[in-house]
Design a protein around this nucleic acid. Structure first.
Lengths: 342, 342
DNA sequence: TTGAAAGCGCTACCAT
DNA sequence: ATGGTAGCGCTTTCAA
């Protein structure tokens, strides 16, 4: 590693040492093939000797595309969100990209964020939070940058979507509650829920109808005034204070579910003795002894795979038809609504 | 926004429309000052008209430095780790950088990761997991890239470190347990713990000694054979199976603590009636009704701030003396070892 | 204060 | 298969 001064080693240096042109060096490190075995070896040897590393900035500038992928996230403190990010990072790196991660709060932030992504000539944008403005997406498309959304409303043209199969989840839950003989059923969601939560609720009501359950069942919508664990907990307290009762409760996410369960416990009620409760997300916490929550499992790994597949497909040909992928979910039976499989 | 074809708008285009040279355009968007008010306005106007955006790749290539900051993470499924990342993202974006996030498993991965960071000419590297090989760090330093480690062993020259004040934590915990009249005290940690966990244990023992507690106290080291929640839970089971007893237990992290507590509960023992238990990290979960865990709070926000301050300082002058910052911690008193403040 | 011009390090086209 | 060369879009002296 004969690095004498400050200047970094360039392809030119390698070319000189190997006695070839810098074009050949570029071919070797740009994976373009078309290099004689012998030349290839000489170049690699020289590169190692000098400690040569491709300058991705220069490469991207030329190719008009970096090996960066922009990821829009929010509220990583939610365990499901961070495990989703984990899955995405995994797949992104696996495919040879690097993740440019930005946390976004408001809609304006999403805008500047996506703009920055384009300024880095990212190879793709993954949106896990917020709704990308159609205009911005258009900008991306013009730059040939594919955009894919995860678990959100699929109403933007030219954007692919990957979403957990909420209908399937709803059916699984409806069947489970029915099997357990529940008659009064509730749906718990945050008042200002994301599209994802709302959709899960819609699908649940729909599933109940299809199963012919809405007739002989009581169906209630429990609205949490705050989000997350505390929201769920407060909802339970209010629920009890109002003297309500329910057999089975399905929750829009794991945080709400854990909170609601704890809230009920504070009121002397517990699952599965007093009611059944089923969550969404299957975060690690739901598996713990204090909760043992029956929950819908979202397949993060599969989601991430599909997302990257969408990205690569559209990157190959930007004008392909919009993809909307549903990822199958599983019902994980645990203590709060027990069944055969455990 | 007169975008006619595919080619993206360049500084050249803006210059032409504004009737100035591209040098001036560069000055405006590179924040170099030295541009007449009038010219400045003309340029901004033209840029808006054309929808001009600086190409960060080209900019970085020239400046030999991108506005990217590399962040090395691992196991984001651990709530503390994801909240730390959240804090870092916040601060990184706040300071006008973009985060290049990479999840790392083994030591080799850290190596290729850091290499990739340098290939993007990042403005800094933040290591939250793994120990950067001295050689690689040297490479970064040669490129003028500052490196800072969070909560890890401070044994690498030219790298700054930011670490929660484990000694302070240990003293707070020792005092609390003493105040509660604990006589047999335990320290729970994962067998193959990170440096952070080991250091916390060392500091705890040291604090106990300094307080003169090791004399009249029984001090045990409980070793968890697995990591995380399950590790803690299993440790509790083994602990009980071996018929051991302890008054007060301090845990290397929140996951272990919650697991241990649940494991004890499965054995019919609970805090604070049968023992006191104090965790580390103050993750959201520890605050929940099912745990109400007394815990050491790490100040993620302050940590992130200091990290970026280190980065910027060393970026300004790479040869400044190594910084090792201790971030003060707080003891959050909750149910598992109650006190005055709650 | 502004403009001209020389690169930054790499890719890709065109010859050979 | 290889080399020459013209950029990619921007920054930064150096002169004016």
């Amino acid at each position: 590693m004969g690095s004498r001064s400050h200047r970094s080693v360039t392809a030119q240096d390698v070319a000189k040492l190997a006695g070839v042109s810098r074009a050949s060096v570029s071919r070797v490190f740009g994976n373009q093939g078309n290099v004689a075995r012998e030349t290839h070896e000489k170049i690699v040897k020289a590169a190692n000797e000098l400690g040569y590393q491709v300058n991705f900035l220069a490469q991207g500038l030329n190719r008009k595309r970096s090996q960066l992928i922009g990821v829009v996230v929010a509220r990583l403190s939610d365990p499901f969100r961070s495990s989703l990010l984990e899955g995405l990072l995994n797949e992104i790196q696996h495919k040879g990209y690097q993740a440019l991660v930005t946390e976004v709060r408001g809609a304006e932030e999403l805008e500047t964020t996506m703009r920055r992504f384009t300024q880095f000539r990212v190879s793709g944008v993954i949106v896990t939070s917020g709704q990308p403005p159609a205009e911005l997406v258009k900008e991306c498309v013009q730059h040939g940058i594919p955009v894919v959304g995860i678990n959100r409303h699929m109403d933007i043209p030219d954007v692919d979507f990957v979403c957990s199969d909420n209908k399937m989840a709803a059916l699984l839950v409806a069947e489970q509650l029915m099997r357990c003989g529940c008659h009064s059923i509730g749906w718990l969601n945050y008042q200002q829920s994301t599209w994802s939560g709302i959709n899960r609720g819609d699908m649940f009501r729909q599933a109940m109808t299809e199963k012919g359950l809405l007739g002989d069942c009581d169906f209630q919508h429990i609205i949490a005034e705050a989000d997350g664990y505390e929201g769920g907990r407060q909802a339970a307290h209010r629920f009890c204070a109002e003297g309500k009762k329910l057999d089975g409760i399905f929750c829009a996410n794991a945080q709400l579910a854990c909170g609601f369960l704890d809230g009920m416990r504070e009121n002397g009620l517990d699952a599965p003795t007093d009611f059944h409760i089923i969550g969404f997300d299957n975060t690690p916490q739901t598996a713990q002894y204090s909760y043992r929550l029956t929950t819908i499992h979202q397949d993060v790994t599969e989601t991430a795979k599909r997302v990257l597949s969408c990205l690569e497909a559209r990157s190959h040909d930007p004008r392909i038809v919009q993809r909307m992928e549903k990822i199958p979910v599983k019902l994980v039976l645990r203590n709060t609504s027990p069944g055969q499989n455990e």
